[in-house]
Each structure stands twice: as structure tokens, then as C-alpha cells.
Design a protein around this nucleic acid. Structure first.
Lengths: 152, 152
DNA sequence: TCATTAGTGGACATGAGACTCCATAATTGA
DNA sequence: TCAATTATGGAGTCTCATGTCCACTAATGA
């Protein structure tokens, strides 16, 4: 239902939001890729999209990289998805019926309703909400202590 | 968000549900394809999937074709989608974190929540509900009178 | 029994998404 | 100014969803 690209974009944004300094100090794409387990070269393309949507800034050269442009508390999950792969609501009849110009038949109304609920669910929480979880998603804390996942 | 295949499956099912006799009298794939504006050869594959899911019956030979096996009032939109392309809920951590074996981090909880709402929305209405709409979706009533879409 | 009708199966073509690789451009610090 | 660092751009690969074509099988009815 959600594409890989969306998944990658979300991971990268969660990672960036979890970094101590949101502005000024940047993370390079290699670090982000490692921390989120995303193929480096592909992530670069995704990061570019996020930069074009002005959710993050990009900086070339030594000490360059990417950093958030929007406070985590104001960045909705939906905004991130819309930056890389906007949710397409159904606003015209997929059958191309002229008589259905404006209003959809019940079938497509239902499908659009489902899409609406997705937007709704993804509008409710921000990056800050995700970060507030005691069970961290990123960075991958497992690697160092993976031998004893449940010590003590 | 929804694939073409899902769209095609839904159209075919709506068409079949709109036919006067649900059992016994079958519609052949060519007719269904024309009425729903779906490529014939491809629709055949989709119909086969629906038959394998036992939502419709298929019959070869003269006067063969496809017909509903389930009353429209008992057939949810979700059932049709699940027959051709099941909605994949997120039940494991996509990052492969061992420590996240059972319960997801907040990010994936949110994404799964969105998927849950889709299932919910698509469980609420049946084929019968869709059929009850005064504005028909299928068959394509436009062709005969398309010249005057809004005559009085 | 035979011709017709209609679904089934498999091979193939095309396009988009996911991904890799490498050359290039921009920025920094020495 | 130069070398190191990092993002950017473009070409190429791989896989899968979509779609086409055709030979084959099953069922019907004359």
C-alpha cells in the first residue's frame, strides 16, 4: 500500500528529527543511509525530493549534509508522504463517464473515502509524536548490544 | 494507492452484481470487459483470481462466463480487494530490528493505523450498497445518450 | 461427432519503481 | 590554490505490474 520510497523518506526524516541539532549541524547521506538501513545511492534521490519540498535543507562540501527545516512538532507524517509520493484522491470518474464529471458513483466514493481516512490518520501525528515513543525506531540501537537484546 | 488490478476487479464485480440473475446466467469476459472499459485479455486474468477466491464462478463453453457466488449484500468491497491484492498490514518492523519483534515503533504503528482505517472504510459497504446508488457506475449508460448529458 | 463458444495457460512486450554506478559540481579547510 | 568531502545528475540494470497474443482445453448444442 505504501511504497518503499515512502518508507525510506519517513525513516530518514525520523532519523533527522532525532538528531540533537535540527538546524545548522547536518547529517550526510551516508550516515543517514547506515542508520536507517536504506541503500545509500537510492536514499540520495529521496533526500533530494525532500529537499525540493523544503522539508529539509541540503548542503554540499565538507561538513555538508541534510538537516530539518521544519520543527518536528509541526511536521506531519502526511507532509512527508506528500513530498515524495502524494496521496492521489479520486476526484474524477476512473471510467471516464462524461455524466460523472463532478460527482463520483458510489464505488469510487467509497474508495476515495478510504483514501480520506488515510490522510486523516497521517495528519494526526507529527514527527515529534513519533520521537516521543519510548521504543525508538531509529537510530538502530541494536547493533552494539545485539547479543543481549533483553539483558537485565 | 490502489492498483489498476484492484480497480478492474471492483468494476467487474459491480457489473456482475448489477446483472438481473446472479446465479445460473453467466456473463462472458468479453461483455464484462466492454461494459467496464477494461482490456479484455487482462480482465480474464483478474476474473480468474476472483474465481479462485470463490467470489464468482467460471464456466467454459457455450453460454459460459462468470457469475456471482455471493449475494451482493454479503460481499464487502474489502473482500474483493483482498481477493486480488490483499492489504498488507504492518505486523513486523520493516527495519528488521530484533528488539521490535512484536511491537512496532510509533512510526510504523501510525502507518499501520492508516492501513487499518482503509480496511475499516472498505468493510463498511457491500456491493449491494454500491448498487443502491441512483447514479449508476456500470454499465456505461452514456454511449447511447451521450449527446445530451444534462437534458432537463 | 463436430463446430462453435468461452475460459485457461504460457510466452512475450512495455513501463514504472527500485536500485547501482560514475562523472561532475559545489563547498570547505589547509 | 588544491585536495578532500559531499551533494547532484544521468545512464544503465533488475524486477514486477500491466497488458497482448496465441495455442489449448472444456462445454454446449446441433
Amino acid at each position: 500500500m505504501f511504497s518503499q520510497t515512502v518508507e525510506y523518506a519517513l525513516r530518514a526524516m525520523v532519523f533527522l528529527a532525532g538528531e540533537p541539532y535540527h538546524h545548522g549541524l547536518a547529517q550526510n547521506s551516508e550516515n543517514i543511509a547506515k542508520a536507517t538501513k536504506v541503500p545509500h545511492a537510492y536514499l540520495s534521490k529521496v533526500l533530494k525530493q525532500l529537499a525540493e519540498a523544503e522539508l529539509i535543507s541540503s548542503q554540499r562540501g565538507v561538513h555538508g549534509g541534510f538537516s530539518l527545516l521544519v520543527p518536528p512538532g509541526e511536521l506531519r507524517i502526511l507532509d512527508i508522504i506528500n513530498a515524495v509520493e502524494p496521496i492521489q484522491r479520486i476526484s474524477y470518474c476512473p471510467l471516464g463517464l462524461p455524466s460523472h464529471g463532478r460527482h463520483l458513483c458510489r464505488l469510487h466514493q467509497q474508495m476515495d473515502e478510504a483514501l480520506g481516512r488515510v490522510e486523516e490518520a497521517l495528519s494526526d501525528s507529527t514527527l515529534a509524536d513519533v520521537l516521543a515513543d519510548p521504543n525508538p525506531c531509529i537510530p538502530l540501537v541494536d547493533s552494539p548490544s545485539s547479543k543481549k537484546p533483553r539483558k537485565r
